[in-house]
């Protein structure tokens, strides 16, 4: 199976500022990929590079085996739903579908009509009069009816209420079963992605901190609590993600493929949210350490 997204040392710079740097990831097809990180981490930049709206400053990126900016055939394979699921306020629901039909060579008119009917959207209604949830569903319908091999969604549910969020994700997941396409979606909230993603990329301050299948990430990360111990006395195959110490106690989040047998540790399971937070903390700690070393 070809990779849905492959990046090698990918970077994008605006003036002096790197929005994304040294990004190397390899995402196999058939996944729902969550791209998570704080606001301003570079999520939108990565998604725009993947959909061909930006050209890289450094490195390379291939999407579904092709270059994102290589032309119409590539554009037809990749759907993009931009941040806040924009629609044309002045156009009606039906006009959106007509526009979609005209712009997309693989447009699935029957699916679009059926979806709009099921959602209870009135075809003559102007998009500007729709609720936030309905607008998002309309934008999703346009993305789905394009029948892409990869659908990219940038913070699709950020501005939606909990019920609309849920309905949006239900529609998206149902469509992945029916039409078998890959999905990459971003959010600054892990809770939005936890149930729907089986592959996760954590992006902090323009760098990928970790990427991998969710199940694998969860089974290789552990929280260890026990008597105080210095990190250099941990086994070499335990990579420290985060650490905190009191006089007597140490708490580590480690990544390791091997089981942890040391009876001194109480080993606890991490939730996906804990895991992402550990990497965000790691980044903050690394930055502080670097700043201190410079000052010395």
């Amino acid at each position: 199976m070809t990779a849905v997204l492959e990046a090698q040392g990918l970077g994008k710079r605006y003036g002096k500022h790197w929005a994304l740097r040294e990004c190397t990831v390899d995402i196999p097809a058939g996944h729902v990929v969550g791209l998570v990180g704080p606001n301003g981490a570079g999520k939108t930049t990565l998604l725009k590079l993947a959909s061909g709206q930006l050209e890289p400053t450094a490195g390379g990126i291939a999407v579904l085996g092709g270059r994102p900016v290589s032309g119409r055939a590539q554009l037809a394979k990749v759907g993009f739903v931009a941040q806040d699921t924009p629609v044309y306020a002045g156009l009606s629901v039906a006009e959106h579908l007509r526009l979609g039909a005209r712009l997309n060579p693989r447009w699935d008119a029957a699916m679009a009509r059926e979806r709009v009917a099921r959602l209870g959207l009135v075809p003559t209604q102007r998009a500007g009069k729709l609720s936030g949830g309905q607008r998002a569903q309309l934008a999703l319908t346009l993305g789905l009816a394009k029948r892409p091999e990869l659908l990219i969604l940038d913070e699709p549910v950020a501005s939606l209420d909990p019920l609309a969020r849920r309905e949006f994700m239900q529609g998206l997941m149902e469509a992945t079963v029916e039409h078998e396409f890959s999905v990459v979606l971003s959010s600054h909230l892990v809770s939005d992605l936890e149930r729907v993603c089986d592959f996760l990329i954590v992006l902090v301050d323009s760098r990928v901190q970790i990427a991998g299948e969710t199940d694998r990430l969860l089974s290789t990360h552990h929280r260890l609590t026990g008597p105080r111990r210095d990190p250099d006395r941990l086994p070499a195959d335990q990579h420290v993600v985060s650490a905190s110490h009191t006089d007597r106690q140490s708490t580590y989040v480690v990544r390791t493929d091997a089981p942890i047998h040391d009876p001194a540790w109480t080993v606890t399971h991490l939730s996906l949210e804990d895991l992402v937070l550990a990497y965000m903390e790691k980044h903050v700690a690394d930055t502080r350490r670097a700043a201190l070393e410079v000052r010395r």
Binding site: V32, Q170, G171, M173, E174, T176, V196
Partner: peptide, 15 residues
């Protein structure tokens, strides 16, 4: 069915 479960729970089909 997978589709029913996925549509109800808003979860990944692989789950």
């Amino acid at each position: 069915t997978v589709k029913e479960a996925v549509a109800r729970l808003a979860i990944n089909p692989n789950t």
